[in-house]
Design a protein around this nucleic acid. Structure first.
Lengths: 173, 173
DNA sequence: ATCAAGAATGTTATTTTATAACATGCTGCC
DNA sequence: GGCAGCATGTTATAAAATAACATTCTTGAT
């Protein structure tokens, strides 16, 4: 009924492997498409993948500024635009932020479950949700061009943590 | 299976009635709750309801500026915050804009179908969509606190118009 | 190798959206 | 009438995004 390419990963996992995998796939995907994954774009993608929490454009800008000298907003936004156009990242509208896509090979719009506590976002490939949406669109004669499905709340570990006491967030990679 | 309080209204309808109805219900709802629908808040709500297209905060600010003199952003944002807290308006995340809620009496998060051409947004009460989402949340053990479901595309009239030639938008109220 | 065309990046300035912090004013209650 | 709490006004600034133009890099044709 539903495939979950990633959903919520355990708080502590080998995140370097996530990054390496994402970059590898991006390389291959761009090569296949004849697109150029330049050093800058690669670096921005890497920064977006620095965790499983959505990253703001200015977070990335600041991080870029660490290695390269002074960087201006358009530099980052253009890279983000490219990555988004290639389906390598998704924009989270409700957070003005970006997150790496775990399945960039197939074009899709994701469904995001985002924890307000640990800030982790899980992208689901929930066909059932799209089907329900498509049915409504059909009834209206509406042609969908862009989907935004973002659910904010508490992931299971954080819900428990918040139920018990209320110490710091889980601190997922 | 689905109730549609409004869906897409015909392009030309008695929109003054929409506004009057929205304001009436807001008055009653606030009275019932012991909340104060002040002149300012009422006026901002009226401006949000100036059409069935989402309005930006600064659009409202400018419109307010016409009648009252100089108005500063916090004035508008505070009124919008209040209206949102009372469920009288919804925020459309993907547009940074606000739209009147056709069914403020019952707390809910809406599902929005937004036409990129005529800019009309229809709020559906599509239980089937929420059910599909709830099922996924259940599988994850995720507790949803805030839903954002926004579908951008073309409404039926605009799709036809765009198929034929490509003149101006429908111009819905 | 050289050059031209197009793509990518750099640079500067500005726009758009939103909030912080503090002052003033209004309203209802005692 | 005074005060407590809410609402609004005011000033300044933060945060997010883009416009417009300059420069550099890449690639393919010659």
């Amino acid at each position: 009924m539903t495939d979950e390419p990633l959903a919520f990963l355990p708080p502590r996992h080998d995140h370097d492997a996530c990054i390496a995998d994402a970059l590898d796939r991006a390389e291959r995907l761009c090569a296949d498409r004849g697109e150029r994954l330049t050093e800058l774009r690669r670096r921005v993608l890497e920064l977006v993948w620095s965790g499983h929490a959505p990253q703001g454009a200015y977070d990335i800008l600041d991080a870029l500024g660490q290695t390269r000298g002074r960087v201006a907003p358009p530099t980052v936004y253009r890279a983000l635009d490219f990555l988004q156009a290639q389906g390598l990242i998704h924009r989270i509208e409700s957070l003005n932020a970006f997150i790496g896509c775990p399945a960039p090979e197939r074009r899709h719009s994701g469904h995001f479950f985002i924890c307000r506590r640990c800030r982790t976002a899980a992208e689901l490939d929930a066909r059932a949700i799209d089907r329900a949406i498509d049915r409504e669109a059909g009834r209206l004669g509406f042609v969908i061009e862009q989907r935004t499905v973002e659910l904010l709340g508490l992931c299971a570990p954080c819900r428990e943590a918040e139920a018990t006491a209320a110490p710091g967030p889980t601190g997922r990679a």
